[in-house]
Nucleic acid binder design. Sequence first.
DNA 1: TATTGTTATACTCTATAACTATA
DNA 2: TATAGTTATAGAGTATAACAATA
Lengths: 167, 167
Amino acid sequence: MASTPSSLSAVQLRAYFALTEVAGLLKHAVEQQLRDVGDLSWVQFQLLARLGLDSATGSERMTDLADGVVYSRSGLTYQAGLLEKAGLVTRAPSADDDRGVTVSITGAGRDRLATVMPGHVEVIRRQLFEPLSAKDTDALADLLVPVRDHMRAAPPRSATPRRRRES
Amino acid sequence: MASTPSSLSAVQLRAYFALTEVAGLLKHAVEQQLRDVGDLSWVQFQLLARLGLDSATGSERMTDLADGVVYSRSGLTYQAGLLEKAGLVTRAPSADDDRGVTVSITGAGRDRLATVMPGHVEVIRRQLFEPLSAKDTDALADLLVPVRDHMRAAPPRSATPRRRRES
DNA sequence: TATTGTTATACTCTATAACTATA
DNA sequence: TATAGTTATAGAGTATAACAATA
């Protein structure tokens, strides 16, 4: 209930800075590996991984992808175009909704993912998990998963421009 | 001792994805606030914060800044140039080493930081810390600080191009 | 010879706004 | 009228390589 203080506690600052630094360094290391081994950017990898690993069908609609990866629509169109040109995904009109576009990972896309994964995993393990015990890893996941869900719930949604309640 | 497996455990994946998503969403939200309120990019804010909050003197050398923020030299030169043009920092030859350049935050720089901080803190609190208890926050910091130190220790240093051991 | 920092350059990424087509 | 996606465009950020100056 107490009114929110206007600065963070020392512990909060430690946690915040550590989080951003870890994420930044990790992203940097991963990007280098992805670029070297698979000629993929971080975002492109995320899109492929979502299609090839998370999705059961290997397909998703543009809007869902944009939401998932935190992206503007046009940005996603751009990246999807690159991936399509590289033969890693295809785009086709959605079956149910003629406005929609369904993106699907191709065989070549899965191959590329397979090419990249071992080194990717290796980087993550060395950089992120080496200093963490199994118990630590568990704890970390249990802390961060609720935070992610909380962030996703209160949506600074990236895609759609808000516009409502003009009186 | 066991040879490293070629994929991550389910828990590791959960932790890894949650970490990157949280960091990504957080950065996104913060960037918007910084841009709206203080006309600062994420990196520019990090540089100012490092000078104004972390450093006792308000000054640091270019190389140290580049290392701290994970940055190429030329990228830092570019950003430092922007900050200088905006009057938020100054650059002067280092006292001890004539090759070096010392960057110092100005009064205007500290003002800008002060302008931006309340909203910044608010975003962090709402997005990141709202779902975390004090104990959770403690635990998170204790988990991530060692990881950060580990990453910094095994340096995929960004700045200097490696070149050594050519036989 | 190695290091510090800048410059020139080229490229990638991202967002905004305008537009088309379908619901 | 609202939503899905694309296009055009313009700007910011980043890295690489070549360079000058100092250690």
